[in-house]
């Protein structure tokens, strides 16, 4: 069963493009990634789902119900972590979480304690005094305390240190195991790759592709950058799968797609002083999709 069904959703802010003709579905129990560069329309889509803004045309259903007409009812089962966390002035962490819990018809105090413990969050501190990362934690607890069936996260990891990120991902996976569906919006490919089953890629307000992560990985590029003791011979790099080669002095950088062993064997014959191998950033992935379409 689909937990989220988005059907030809379009949103214009006046004449400014928000999203255009966005359609995709999120199945119950999956962790779904929603990825795209800043300003692509991720937040617009999510805010429409939550009824913060109204679609220009098209519609969206959550739990099979229209997200505008049945908003308050649907939101009982949604936990939301906004990308920027702002909270009421002068409130303590505990006050805010109790206020947040008071909107749901159940006792969440035990869950608040548990989550605060896992994330190492002090409930007695004033929110104004917290660092960005700690504010983010308040947002996470606030979004999870009522054990929602659908968790929507808009760029959740900003400000969290790697250890906290890991704890947070573990929390999400745990909730997911218990049956929660997760919609995770991000511009960081690696975190989406780590968590998600499927991903929708959005660019300039339009969905470019909806794909399984496993498929995406197969077609994925790696970015290599190597520094040599001497200027390398460009011919060495004429292996199948190498693209965008640039040689600048002793440094060569290129994109590679295919069997990584081939590159490693070739590099092993050269004298290397330093090497970087990384996932290409999103722009490069998008370029890859555009090239394919062209």
């Amino acid at each position: 069963m689909n937990v989220i069904e988005i059907d030809h959703l379009t949103k214009y802010y006046g004449k400014t493009r928000g999203i255009i003709d966005v359609s995709f579905s999120v199945e119950g129990g999956e962790i779904f990634g929603f990825i795209g560069p800043n300003g692509a329309g991720k937040s617009t889509t999510i805010r429409t789902l939550l009824g913060l803004i109204y679609p220009t045309s098209g519609s969206a259903k959550i739990f099979g119900k229209d997200c505008i007409a049945h908003g308050p009812e649907i939101r009982r089962q949604i936990g939301y972590l906004p990308s920027e966390v702002f909270y009421y002035d002068g409130m303590k962490v505990g006050d805010l979480l109790r206020y947040s819990a008071s909107f749901y018809r159940k006792d969440c105090s035990k869950r608040i304690q548990e989550l605060a413990e896992v994330l190492d969050l002090d409930l007695t501190r004033k929110i104004d005094d917290l660092s960005y990362g700690n504010k983010k934690k308040v947002g996470i607890v606030q979004g999870l305390l009522h054990e929602p069936k659908l968790i929507i996260l808009d760029e959740p990891t900003g400000g969290l240190d790697p250890l906290m990120q890991q704890k947070f991902f573990d929390l999400l996976l745990e909730e997911n195991k218990k049956g929660a569906t997760v919609l995770l919006s991000s511009h960081i490919l690696s975190e989406v790759q780590r968590l998600c089953d499927r991903v929708a890629i959005i660019k300039d307000g339009r969905i470019v592709k909806v794909e399984k992560i496993s498929t995406l990985k197969e077609s994925n590029y790696k970015r290599f950058k190597c520094e040599f003791t001497a200027m390398p011979d460009a011919n060495m790099f004429s292996i199948d799968g190498v693209e965008n080669l640039t040689i600048d002095g002793n440094v060569a950088s290129f994109l590679f797609r295919g069997d990584v062993n081939k590159v490693v064997r070739m590099l092993a014959t050269l004298d290397i002083t330093d090497i970087w191998a990384a996932d290409p950033d999103l722009e490069e992935i998008f370029m890859h999709y555009y090239e394919k379409e062209a």
Binding site: L50, P72, R75, Y80, P82, F86, Y87, Y88, F103
Partner: peptide, 17 residues
């Protein structure tokens, strides 16, 4: 103004209430 609307409207409350 304080950007708390995103917190509030994600709760199960209607705008009327």
């Amino acid at each position: 103004r304080d950007k708390t609307v995103e917190f509030l409207l994600a709760k199960p409350v209607s705008r009327h209430s």
